[in-house]
Amino acid sequence: MERGFLDEDFTRISVTQNSLQELKEILDQWNEENPAYSCFTLGKVDLVPTVEEYMALLWCAKIQVDKVYSRAINPPTFLKKLMNIIGISEQWVTTRIKQKRDNKCISWRNLKDVVLKHLDMKKRVDVFALSIYGLVIFPKALGHVNEAVTDLFDRLDKGFTPVLAILAETFRSLNACRRAGEGRFIGCAQLLLAWFHSHFWKVDKVSYRVFSGSYFLLKEVVATPMRDDISMEKWIAILQNLQEEDVE
Rank of each mutant, 00 (worst) to 15 (best):
A141R: 10
T95H: 07
G187A: 02
K67R: 13
R96N: 08
R184T: 09
G159I: 00
V125H: 14
L116W: 06
E169H: 07
G134L: 03
D157P: 12
D157Y: 11
T150I: 03
Q91T: 07
K80V: 08
E147C: 08
E169G: 08
A61E: 15
I106P: 05
F78M: 04
R96I: 02
C105H: 03
S131C: 02
S89A: 13
A148G: 08
A189C: 14
G183H: 12
G187V: 01
E169F: 04
L152W: 02
G183M: 06
K140F: 03
T170A: 15
N110A: 05
L174V: 04
K98R: 14
P139R: 15
Y133M: 05
T170K: 12
K123L: 05
G159A: 06
Y69C: 00
Y133C: 00
P139W: 10
K98F: 10
K123V: 09
I132T: 08
F78N: 03
K158L: 04
N103Y: 12
T77D: 10
D157R: 11
G87A: 01
G134T: 07
F185R: 13
V145Y: 04
S131H: 07
D157L: 09
L174R: 02
K98H: 13
D126C: 01
V136S: 01
S70K: 12
Y69F: 08
V68A: 05
A165P: 07
A180C: 03
A61M: 13
L174T: 06
I73P: 08
E182A: 14
R179L: 12
E90W: 09
R184D: 12
N146L: 09
D113C: 10
V65I: 10
C105W: 05
V136K: 09
A129L: 13
L174Y: 02
I88Y: 05
V93L: 08
R178V: 14
C177A: 00
S107E: 04
K100R: 15
I86L: 00
N84L: 13
I166C: 09
V145L: 11
K98L: 13
V114Q: 06
I166P: 03
V125F: 10
H118L: 00
D151K: 09
Q64E: 11
I106F: 00
S107Y: 05
I63C: 12
L119M: 14
L167D: 12
F153K: 03
N103C: 09
Q64P: 10
G143N: 04
F78S: 01
L142E: 13
I86K: 00
R101Y: 02
I85Y: 04
I137C: 04
R96L: 06
P75E: 05
I86S: 04
D154L: 10
G159Q: 05
D102T: 02
W108D: 13
T94A: 09
K62Q: 15
A168N: 04
V68Y: 11
R172P: 00
S131M: 05
C105K: 04
N84V: 13
R155N: 00
V136Y: 12
I85E: 02
R71T: 11
T161W: 05
Q91H: 02
G159N: 03
A189R: 15
N74R: 10
Q64C: 14
G181K: 05
M121K: 14
R109P: 05
I166Y: 00
P76M: 02
R101H: 01
V93Q: 05
G134Q: 08
L152P: 06
T77K: 07
A129V: 11
G87W: 04
R178F: 12
I85N: 06
K100I: 13
V145M: 08
